[in-house]
Design a binder for these strands. Structure first.
Lengths: 341, 341
DNA sequence: TATGTTTATGCAAACGTTTGAATAAACTTC
DNA sequence: GAAGTTTATTCAAACGTTTGCATAAACATA
């Protein structure tokens, strides 16, 4: 039986309310009383019970992160840890706690998240990596729970932080075309993620902008794993009629593609140009170092946390933050001899 | 104002207790009443308030993970996400929730974790990556909070899950010596982590077992980052009197060492043998593929969660689980021509 | 001295559950 | 048909806080 506010009140010879007011920092308490209560708390080793406080305040001071992917898959992509770091930093500073929702199946994840919200265990949700059609988002909107997405929800206005994936992908593919690679394929992640389609759209725009027709058989979208990237690479590169370059939706996929090229004896960047996305930590370490698109992932997390906590506090409903993207040119997209023309 | 148990009771024409007993699945409630209450709950869209339940049950059904590292550093090491996946899986199945503690400074982290426990926001803690002298562990022991460490606390008996790092490191270094590399250096992570010293110990044993003296200048322990690995590699390999092989404490460090070798024009595995630890996902992708030690990280997480939840439930106090380690031999430790003798 | 104002504290009602003990009704048993 | 047993339900006291309102004391004002 831990010591409660009642014990402190008795010890200090004041009422419970007074102790409570000392805890919450109410200015009406006189200095002597304040000190008396503080001393009693210290003597007894008192720590206020956050659960009881939550009950009366109707606020848990906790937010949930939903990852939209199985934990072992999600966290293996450095994007997630990085974004969590950003969220964590801001939330901690604002005295919020972080709950991690992660589940193998989407249905499970959806159920768990809604439970957390409905049971009032968390005050709001940050949703990482939005899907094309996500019942969780619909339900949260309908029930009026505060939430922020990292990404974009097609068709509806929801508070979000995102980068312009279409423009960034277009920039990446244009870079390949400028580098003398005349044909480019696209390897994407899961087709039910919005980001897969946005980057695909940018890829298509870059091609059609140059009058190059889009070949459907050069677009492969499966999962964001190195294995999927490897298999996509094998499929694309085995044919004699193969693309000169590949734009992969993220660095993990690009690493898989790289492996497939090595396996097939195709040299990068001489015979194949390759560009990834995210600038994962390992991207500068692999051989050849990977050209990639860098976005301020940590800052995106921080911004999402800021928006969510604002929302919980009752601030204006919907806003959207767009962060910049930057091309990081390394070896994988740079032929040693510039193209003849 | 969300609907409460009181509303349901009124709607169903029964007492609050009866509704509560339906929720908790008390067998004494008759079938007709049970159905009547269920119907009322459905009609009203009722969801029980977990905070109120926690208050009376004196249990939050939440556990905390403390990472012992700054989030952006920690999570960048694939070990962490993987272990979190294992914890998450088991905890979810047992209806426990996961809180993530992560902070830039250790003091902050310690304070935050203790607050979580003292304020009764969480029922217990899983502590990842133990340090040589950790005030948090001491305090949790003293105050009697349930916790499990992943790693080992020197000198005291605490519930833990760990692999035998000394033996595993000895195995890795012996493998290098067996492969004909006659001298080996050690690159470790942060010197205040227990694991850094355990693997160092295994390294020393392998050497002295072969009658090879340990050279202090061939032991470099800084941080577990690719950058630190790179710098250590440069230091070790720049001298003409350089080791023939390097055992790195983890794959991230090994990747950095590899980069330094490439920079200095030293070929791996011909002129330098290299072994890492953890079998991170990228380790089979880099060139040459990295020889490494694989431990069942996901399962370690799951086991830690099982132990902690048992402890919270009041099971026997202290036990230790040791998981096996396995050497995964790839290119980085294999000279093309076997050594002459 | 009576009156109004400020300042510091206490009272008691929430917040939304769970649960031991009491009660009432329905069955047994002899 | 009285006494004992089982079954289904309700009562009311927790759990540990916060906070609007009331109160009392101290001070200023007239």
């Amino acid at each position: 039986m831990p010591v409660t506010i009642k014990d402190v009140a008795r010890e200090a010879g004041v009422s419970i309310s007074t102790v409570s007011r000392v805890i919450t920092g109410d200015s009406r308490i006189s200095q002597p009383t304040r000190e008396k209560v503080r001393a009693a708390m210290a003597r007894l080793g008192y720590h206020p019970n956050a659960i009881a406080r939550s009950l009366v305040r109707q606020r848990s001071n906790t937010i949930a992160l939903v990852m939209s992917r199985a934990p072992r898959l999600a966290m293996a992509i450095p994007f997630y840890p990085e974004i969590i770091g950003g969220i964590s930093e801001y939330a901690t500073a604002e005295h919020y706690h972080l709950m991690l929702v992660s589940s193998e199946s989407r249905e499970e994840e959806c159920v768990q998240t809604l439970q957390l919200l409905r049971h009032r265990r968390v005050d709001g949700v940050i949703h990482l990596a939005t899907r094309i059609k996500d019942p969780l988002i619909d339900t949260m909107r309908r029930e009026g729970h505060p939430f922020v997405v990292i990404g974009r929800v097609p068709g509806v206005e929801v508070p979000s932080v995102n980068n312009d994936n279409v423009a960034a992908a277009e920039m990446a593919v244009t870079h390949l075309l400028d580098g003398g690679y005349t044909s480019v394929a696209y390897v994407g992640g899961s087709p039910d993620l919005v980001v897969t389609w946005d980057r695909r759209e940018g890829y298509c725009r870059a091609l059609t902008g140059r009058g190059i027709p889009v070949r459907e058989d050069w677009i492969i979208c499966r999962e964001s794993t190195a294995e999927a990237g490897y298999e996509a690479g094998i499929e694309l590169l085995s044919s004699p009629d193969r693309p000169q370059a590949i734009f992969a939706m993220d660095d993990t996929l690009a690493a898989g593609v790289l492996k497939s090229a090595r396996k097939l004896g195709i040299s990068v960047p001489q015979e194949l140009g390759l560009v990834g996305f995210n600038d994962d930590p390992f991207s500068s370490l692999i051989e050849p170092a990977l050209t990639t698109v860098r976005i301020p992932i940590f800052e995106m997390g921080r911004e999402a946390a800021r928006m969510l906590i604002g929302l919980i506090g009752g601030s204006s409903p919907s806003q959207n933050v767009v962060v910049p993207a930057e091309l990081v040119v390394r070896q994988s997209s740079r032929r040693r001899t510039p193209p003849a023309g």
